[in-house]
Nucleic acid binder design. Structure first.
Lengths: 332, 332
DNA sequence: TCGCATAATGTAATCGGTTACAGGTAAATT
DNA sequence: AATTTACCTGTAACCGATTACATTATGCGA
């Protein structure tokens, strides 16, 4: 494999000239430039980036920590993140943590040992659920919540949830079930607050029995829905904290002969691709995942490059999308 | 930031001893080992992997080239690939090519410049659609087809397609529509051959009008289905070359008042998570994505490490999954 | 013609590890 | 006691780029 010294020898110039010809060609005479390019072509020289990165003490790579890459909501983020990183000359190291603490630490270690320059965290984190990333390593949360500490891009989960539940209430629903994420998940916490806000402003009393806990998977939504089917005083609408659980729940409801939305309305959150194609199509909240990913990557790279941040938190607007899974409450 | 020389100084040993204490502790006296570990703890030493990788001329990273990471079929693969790579101490560099030639080249360049040691290709490639990866760089296709050149893991697309169409024929269907991928996609080619095989063995004549071309997205499936709705002599079953297009097509069919499976059967391919949860649940072919990803990564790492390969191609079995989207043809 | 600024180039140090080689000590063998 | 062997350790070269600094050549004005 040819090195910069081979090129220099063949071109009849010094290694410094070759290096300059590549990184600052305006500092090199046209004559030398030509000789260098000829030599590069002759020996098919490809610079060794490992050497370059070593010298510059930078890896030009960023770890993306994601709880589960097969989750369609995260994959949208990742696509945007990767796109932006690529544009700026950075690589994305995939860090699928499968939700475990241990794997997260392994990836943090990669930054500490210089194999990556920073971290994009997709797991929502708050003070309560410590994020165990040392303060001195560049990190941005691309999917934060109200209590996320450090630089973050997020939506206003609480307000979005309130909007959704307000809408259900406006349709006449008074008993509104919730399919939540795990209790200690910060998104669950924020969205549940939004749900309670909506009930409060409508003067509806909160009923703990209407909360069914899931874990953001379709399967858990499917299970959670049974809790509502078997109730003597069934809710007339269900607010699911993500689309996947809503889609799972629909299966259960349909299987139990409950018509959507005639007998029960159901809503999601995230607006994943299937939300539009399921039957009936899902009323949901759209998160600007592309935009969030792009902004998060920009923020991280700015931190890495040592540029000042104009703001360390950015709250992006969501979009409320009404489809066919919701309808006015049935008069019975 | 502390280096190995700092540790050596504080421990009162040479840098060689420190290096050995870390990579071959059995070659170092217990006494030295203790001094080194104490010094490491004292200065919070983290080895600079960029230096190590530079010296060893290896990056311990692998590029995964994927046409679109937001495609749920690919994300399953990626999860398996990442899992295996992590186990073996390799990082996964995400290479979302968005289907473009150009981006693929950018990632190939990363291998040539030593930022990665090899490539996992998820785009099906064949002789016809050149894969433009130089022969001297380690590469495995994790999602190959019959004509893929070089090391590959694949399924028997042709046989799987035939199994599916045989099944539809066994239900009495004679006019079987196809929603295909792009014409020159190798998977399309293989699966279409399987379709024709099945027709041939049942003595049914091939009808070009029954082929609707899509591009493996839901949206294209939705559109392709219109071609069948408007036909005077409508097919009684549709074989879609992936689940997403099948799900898109279902939307169109239902919207046109065509009942599934009573009026028309429909089948998919891949068995993505949603295939089980759509309405009706989808009869499909399950690909062992986890297993394929794992095997592909193992094969690639073996090539990188210079170990001999027992075989350069591996064809894994698929599973035929019957759900609710298929039924015997209606007697009319 | 001389002095000085500017441009182009070359020499060699440097980054932080790994490792070939040499040297030294103590135990084992003759 | 001499020789061999095993084991541990240290010195310094090395990987391939970048870049500070020195050097040389050229152009320009006085």
């Amino acid at each position: 494999m040819s090195s910069i010294r081979d090129v220099a020898r063949i071109a009849g110039v010094s290694v410094a000239t070759v290096s300059r010809a590549l990184s600052m060609p305006e500092k090199v005479s046209a004559e030398s430039l030509e000789k260098v390019h000829a030599a590069i072509a002759q020996v098919d020289y490809k610079p060794n980036m490992l050497a370059r990165n070593f010298r510059s003490a930078r890896s030009y790579a960023v770890v993306v920590l994601v709880p589960d890459i097969a989750n369609p909501f995260y994959s949208l983020f990742i696509r945007a993140l990767e796109d932006r990183a690529q544009q700026k000359g950075y690589a994305v190291l995939l860090g699928d943590t499968r939700g475990t603490h241990e794997r997260e630490l392994e990836y943090i270690r990669r930054v500490e040992t210089r194999l990556a320059d920073g971290i994009i965290q997709l797991r929502p984190s708050s003070e309560k659920s410590l994020n165990n990333i040392p303060a001195d390593i560049p990190c941005v949360n691309a999917c934060g919540c109200e209590y996320t500490t450090g630089p973050a891009i997020r939506i206003d989960n609480r307000a979005a949830a309130k909007t959704m539940v307000d809408y259900l209430i406006s349709l006449g629903h008074k008993r509104i079930g919730v399919i939540s994420g795990l209790k200690d998940n910060p998104h669950t916490v924020d969205r549940l607050e939004g749900y309670k806000d909506a009930l409060r402003s409508a003067g509806i009393e909160f009923d703990r029995d209407l909360i069914a806990e899931g874990d953001f998977t379709m399967w858990s939504g499917l299970n959670a829905a049974f809790q509502f089917c078997n109730m003597k005083n069934r809710p007339t609408a269900v607010f699911s904290m993500n689309d996947e659980m809503a889609i799972g729940a629909m299966q259960t409801l349909k299987a139990q002969g409950i018509r959507i939305p005639e007998d029960m309305s159901i809503t999601g959150f995230d607006d994943i691709a299937y939300a539009k194609y399921c039957d009936p199509s899902l009323t949901t909240i759209s998160q600007p995942a592309e935009e969030m990913g792009k902004m998060a990557m920009d923020m991280l790279l700015r931190i890495i490059e040592g540029e000042p941040l104009s703001q360390t938190e950015c709250v992006l607007p969501t979009e409320f999308i009404i489809r066919k899974s919701t309808a006015p409450v049935k008069i019975s």
